[in-house]
Amino acid sequence: MTDAPQAQGPERSRSSETSQTLSRGLDVLALVCASDTGLTPAQIAAELELSRTIVYRLVGTLVEHRLVRRNADGLLSAGLGTLALTQNFAPTLRQGSHEILETLAEELGATAHLSIADGDEALAVAVVEPRSTTFHVSYRPGSRTPLELGAVGQALLAARHGERKTFASEGKIVAGACGIVASLPGISGLACALGVVTLAGTDTAGWDARVRAAAVELEALLNQ
């Protein structure tokens, strides 16, 4: 009697109740979507510890469903079909983050926001303004700013590199406003940052710790 073959590499952690083929296909898709430059089948095979034959078969299926695209240079990148999978993602982020942002906004008397990296821009997907203040900075959901500007961009770049950091800036995006933003490096496949923006000159002592705590809380919630 021989022992059943044991899965190698990443496959060892798979639950017996999951589909191995589907899991492998999703691993390939996640790896391709996380690459800024594109990947070759050989690179995917090496990273996931799979044979090239398996990778070619999985890639063929993903290409057929427009989830992966074969570029002219032979590299594989995310296909247009992935847009359909993410079209309701922003509303999910808004709903999941609202209570945490609302609490933060009321506690600090500042506008709280959640942003994600979209290419080389920061995209505000959720914004909650405080109700208890006479004056505060208005921040519109859907606003876009270059990643190289301000604390939001710095935090999103840190999240992309798996770094948990907090940043502060003043007048970089809006004159007369200052912001404190924390990165959320634990959201797989997505660079997120949570922060607050307020009027320049406001006493923000201790705010960085509160923003960090809110970011950790939201990260745990989104990973449930």
Rank of each mutant, 00 (worst) to 15 (best):
G74N: 11
I44Y: 01
E49P: 00
A84F: 11
A112F: 10
A78L: 07
E47R: 15
A72E: 15
T40C: 05
E64D: 13
E102G: 01
T92W: 14
E107S: 10
E64T: 11
C33D: 08
V68C: 11
L48R: 12
Y56L: 11
T37L: 09
I100A: 02
A45T: 13
A112T: 12
A90S: 09
A72V: 15
A72S: 15
P91G: 05
Y56W: 11
S77K: 08
R66W: 01
S35V: 09
A78F: 04
E99K: 11
V55R: 03
E106A: 10
S51R: 09
V68P: 06
E107F: 02
L93P: 01
N71H: 11
N71K: 13
L85N: 05
V63W: 00
L83Y: 11
V32T: 01
E49H: 09
D73I: 04
G79I: 10
E107K: 13
T37C: 01
T103G: 03
P91Y: 13
G109S: 06
V32M: 05
N71P: 00
L101I: 14
V28S: 01
R52E: 15
L29Y: 03
L39W: 04
D27C: 00
R52Y: 00
Q87M: 11
A34H: 00
L67A: 06
L101Q: 12
L85K: 02
T37W: 03
S51K: 02
T92G: 12
R57M: 01
L85T: 14
T37M: 05
T82S: 09
A34S: 12
P91D: 07
L108C: 07
G109N: 03
L39E: 05
I100Y: 01
A42D: 12
G96E: 01
T61A: 13
L83Q: 14
P91I: 15
A34Q: 08
L50K: 04
H113S: 09
G81T: 02
A46L: 12
D73S: 07
V28Y: 00
L108F: 06
L104W: 08
V28M: 03
